[in-house]
């Protein structure tokens, strides 16, 4: 199988303020968010990064999407270094987050054109793709309605669509269903499967087991910034449910660290 993303020995630390030290209950002014993290994803699969809050999932995805830089190690998409060629990487990837809240003032039509232009998509191609995506997601009826007047589900659909204006082959999705109502979460899940069927490679981060079970081909479990295991969903759930497997690993890991 063809490797699309190769992550090699990523390390990322953050400086903690005194206030953060208090919250984290630590005397160290450095927090290791990601520590010697390595994994890879294959073409056309959905890879899930599973871990509790603060495990380093978002940091990993932000490094891969060029938003932040790793202290050590590197990631490669189609063999291109994230560290050395962020401009090339940005053309290849689509980055989505459920935290995204679009500006209420604009219409879906305007925002789609805006991001298409920023991604350098040709007008004719952009228009064709816009019509397809808008029709598919039922946005076409609301394309001239201001975002502020639309429902949460519709806003989320628009966020997804505008993040993919340039039709990227590699998609990074941070906490795709976090904080969404069941209907919108279902829509996002179906969308991920649809993208996979189109041959896209997707990496998601989540702490929701059901999402992983439903959409992912392979899973990486991250605890305290370390990749504890990376395997197919099939292998991980061979003798127990994903949830049980995760807590077994978690107990081992956290127990070992506490000892």
């Amino acid at each position: 199988m063809e490797e699309i993303l190769v992550v090699k020995n990523l390390k990322k630390t953050f400086k903690l303020s005194k206030k953060q030290q208090k919250i984290e209950k630590t005397k160290s002014d450095i927090k290791v968010a990601v520590n010697d993290l390595s994994f890879s994803t294959y073409k056309g699969e959905i890879y899930g990064l599973l871990g509790p809050n603060g495990a380093g999932k978002t940091t990993t995805l932000r490094i891969i999407s060029t938003l932040i830089k790793a202290d050590e190690g590197d990631a490669f998409i189609d063999g291109v270094s994230v560290k050395n060629s962020p401009d090339i990487i940005r053309k290849k990837i689509g980055f989505l987050t459920s935290e995204l809240k679009l500006e209420d003032f604009f219409t879906p039509n305007y925002l789609y054109d805006y991001f298409s232009e920023l991604h350098g998509v040709e007008k004719h191609t952009a228009e064709k793709r816009k019509n397809e995506l808008f029709k598919k997601f039922g946005i076409d009826k609301f394309k001239e309605v201001k975002i502020g007047e639309l429902s949460t589900g519709m806003k989320q659909k628009i966020s997804l669509v505008i993040s993919l204006v340039h039709d990227p082959n590699f998609i990074i999705f941070d906490e795709p269903t976090n904080g969404l109502d069941v209907l919108t979460a279902k829509m996002v899940t179906d969308f991920l499967i649809d993208l996979k069927n189109q041959g896209k490679t997707i990496i998601i981060s989540t702490h929701i087991f059901s999402l992983i079970e439903k959409v992912c081909d392979r899973v990486g479990i991250i605890i305290n910034g370390k990749m504890i295991c990376s395997d197919t969903l099939e292998n991980l759930t061979a003798d127990m449910s994903l949830e049980d497997k995760f807590f077994e690993i978690y107990k081992q890991e956290v127990g070992e660290e506490n000892e």
């Binding site: 060029t66 401009d87 053309k91 987050t97 935290e99 995204l100 500006e103 991001f115 920023l118 991604h119």
Partner: peptide, 16 residues
Amino acid sequence: GEKERGTIATLLVTPV
């Protein structure tokens, strides 16, 4: 406002 809404990340991952 862009930072607060999270749209800054979408903007920063564009090739601009």
